[in-house]
């Protein structure tokens, strides 16, 4: 949570999480949000999808690619509820970066808050990468945030990253509280221009 960290590059083995419109209720079912810290969230990641009817682990990719650092997802990932519990769970499970077709906005914002680069590329490229991971479970994937590239095996692909996310990660200014805290007097000036804000108690 420190604002000092510059995140220019993340890497490791991959885990494909295929499917479009995967919502945050699937990523982190609501019944596991009844905790006042995020500490245990990794245990609940994709809780239902990862288990069969007897509660045993099934062949969900998260079970098959234990230890992975780079999640590869499809389109509109993280839609639905705003719960930061979802990317928190992914981060605490081990995900350091995400490559995918597209993200729901609140999810992407939450990733930025946590310093998780979430980059995008087209459908075909994502599917190729997902297939490559299936064939190369121990293969390294590298997300170069600064140069907007992803490298796996012999392949390097160009990816896109939201401008604000890139700036925040590369410059190490993704802790927005620190960033905004120093602008107190400007906030006061803004407040002065708002007719509805004035110690009405």
């Amino acid at each position: 949570m420190s604002g000092e960290n510059h995140i220019t590059e993340v890497g490791g083995t991959g885990v494909p999480i295929p499917g479009d419109d995967i919502d945050t209720d699937q990523i982190l079912p609501a019944r596991f949000m009844k905790e006042v810290t995020f500490d245990n969230m990794a245990d609940y990641l994709f809780y239902d999808a990862r288990r069969d009817d007897d509660g045993e682990f099934n062949d969900h990719p998260l079970n098959r690619f234990e230890g992975a650092s780079i999640a590869v997802i499809n389109s509109n990932f993280g839609c639905g509820s705003s719960r930061e519990h979802a990317p928190q769970a992914m981060m605490r499970w081990g995900v350091d970066g995400i490559v995918g077709e597209s993200y729901a906005e609140i999810f992407r914002d939450n990733c930025k808050s946590l310093g998780i680069p979430a980059v995008t590329t087209d459908h075909e490229t994502v599917v190729e990468l997902q297939e490559w991971i299936e064939a190369n479970p121990d293969g390294e994937i590298d997300i170069d945030v600064e140069n907007e590239e992803v490298t796996y095996g012999e392949t390097t692909i160009d990816v896109d990253i939201d401008h604000a996310m890139k700036e925040a990660l590369v410059e190490g200014i993704w802790d927005t509280t620190s960033l905004m805290y120093s602008n107190k007097s400007k906030v006061e000036a803004t407040v002065d221009g708002l007719p509805y804000v004035e110690g009405d108690d």
Binding site: F38, E167, L179, V187
Partner: peptide
Amino acid sequence: HKVTELPNGQDQLFIGLHLVHEVTSPQ
């Protein structure tokens, strides 16, 4: 409500009403 532009290119936006509930706030 715009306070200023931040170094990352985003706007700092003042929030006039902040609503809080038990699930997403304790952390």
